[in-house]
Amino acid sequence: MSEPTLRLKGVHTNIAQYHILQGVDFDVPAGGVTMLLGRNGVGKTTTLRTIMGLWRARAGTILFEDRDITGLATSAIARAGIGYVPEDMGIFSDLTVEENMTLAAIGGPLDPDRLDWLFSAFPPLKTFWKKEAGNLSGGQKQMLSIARAMAEKRKLYLIDEPTKGFAPAIVATLAGALRELKNQGASILLVEQNFSVARALGDSCAVMDDGKIVWSGAMAALAGDHALQEKLMGLSVETA
């Protein structure tokens, strides 16, 4: 394993009166894909939102490249080099695809070579470049959401359930783009319910239950141990 690009130490997060994260500890190694897995409602989305500063950690430390980002504003965390794809996509429906992408390029104009790569990964974005994003299909909106995070090279990408509810062809397109991003050397923390995608993309893995990390290790180790899958998540990666 490489040195961690992101490290969570004893992170607690409350939402209203609810204690959601209860001492989360795990690392995201640099240059690979870390899967954050677990049943619904165990705190995976809260973990990503806490890293991005959208929800504040009540206790604990979040280190990004050995820099404490726990108390930073979301805008400062983004400028530090972290891209975020929320589960709800978060696109601007009344803006065009082009305008959505332009807003995502915080460093200046969109790089033409980067844009060509995104068009090759997500062809519908080029087709509907001048169209309002609200007119896209669900799968096309997800492509736009992911492409916005990739508009500039980031040091770390946080991606929340990108393939949820989509047809196999869309899943294959999204997984292919994430694989290419991985091949470019990006670090990715990926929440994913499609375990065949998790097995194909993941290098390392952390499994959550009830607001805590209950297991971490190599994705291949989890994928090859059906009894462990049943114990941790109640289903088999092999047969999911």
Rank of each mutant, 00 (worst) to 15 (best):
residue 3 E to L: 15
residue 6 L to E: 04
residue 10 G to T: 13
residue 11 V to W: 05
residue 12 H to K: 14
residue 12 H to Y: 00
residue 13 T to F: 06
residue 14 N to H: 12
residue 15 I to N: 01
residue 18 Y to K: 14
residue 19 H to E: 02
residue 22 Q to T: 01
residue 23 G to K: 08
residue 23 G to L: 02
residue 25 D to C: 01
residue 29 P to L: 08
residue 31 G to A: 09
residue 32 G to W: 10
residue 32 G to H: 12
residue 34 T to I: 06
residue 34 T to W: 04
residue 36 L to H: 11
residue 44 K to R: 10
residue 45 T to R: 09
residue 52 M to Q: 08
residue 53 G to S: 06
residue 54 L to M: 07
residue 56 R to L: 03
residue 61 T to F: 03
residue 62 I to P: 01
residue 64 F to T: 05
residue 65 E to A: 04
residue 67 R to I: 02
residue 74 T to H: 12
residue 76 A to R: 15
residue 76 A to E: 12
residue 78 A to V: 15
residue 78 A to K: 15
residue 80 A to Q: 14
residue 82 I to L: 03
residue 83 G to Q: 14
residue 88 D to P: 07
residue 91 I to W: 13
residue 92 F to K: 14
residue 94 D to G: 02
residue 95 L to N: 09
residue 98 E to H: 15
residue 104 A to F: 10
residue 105 A to W: 07
residue 108 G to R: 15
residue 110 L to W: 09
residue 114 R to D: 00
residue 117 W to L: 11
residue 120 S to L: 07
residue 127 T to N: 10
residue 127 T to Y: 10
residue 128 F to H: 13
residue 133 A to K: 13
residue 133 A to L: 05
residue 138 G to V: 08
residue 138 G to I: 12
residue 139 G to Y: 04
residue 142 Q to L: 07
residue 144 L to W: 07
residue 146 I to Y: 03
residue 148 R to T: 01
residue 148 R to L: 02
residue 153 K to L: 05
residue 155 K to P: 01
residue 156 L to S: 12
residue 157 Y to V: 11
residue 157 Y to K: 13
residue 158 L to Y: 07
residue 160 D to N: 04
residue 160 D to L: 07
residue 161 E to W: 05
residue 162 P to Q: 05
residue 162 P to A: 05
residue 163 T to F: 05
residue 164 K to D: 04
residue 169 A to E: 02
residue 169 A to Y: 04
residue 171 V to P: 00
residue 171 V to H: 07
residue 173 T to R: 11
residue 175 A to L: 07
residue 175 A to H: 13
residue 177 A to E: 07
residue 178 L to V: 11
residue 183 N to G: 08
residue 185 G to N: 10
residue 186 A to Q: 00
residue 195 F to P: 01
residue 201 L to Y: 00
residue 203 D to R: 13
residue 205 C to E: 01
residue 208 M to V: 00
residue 208 M to A: 01
residue 208 M to W: 10
residue 209 D to K: 13
residue 214 V to N: 12
residue 215 W to S: 04
residue 216 S to R: 13
residue 222 L to D: 03
residue 223 A to Y: 12
residue 223 A to S: 12
residue 223 A to H: 14
residue 226 H to W: 13
residue 226 H to I: 09
residue 226 H to M: 06
residue 229 Q to Y: 10
residue 229 Q to P: 00
residue 230 E to L: 05
residue 230 E to D: 11
residue 232 L to D: 00
residue 240 A to G: 06
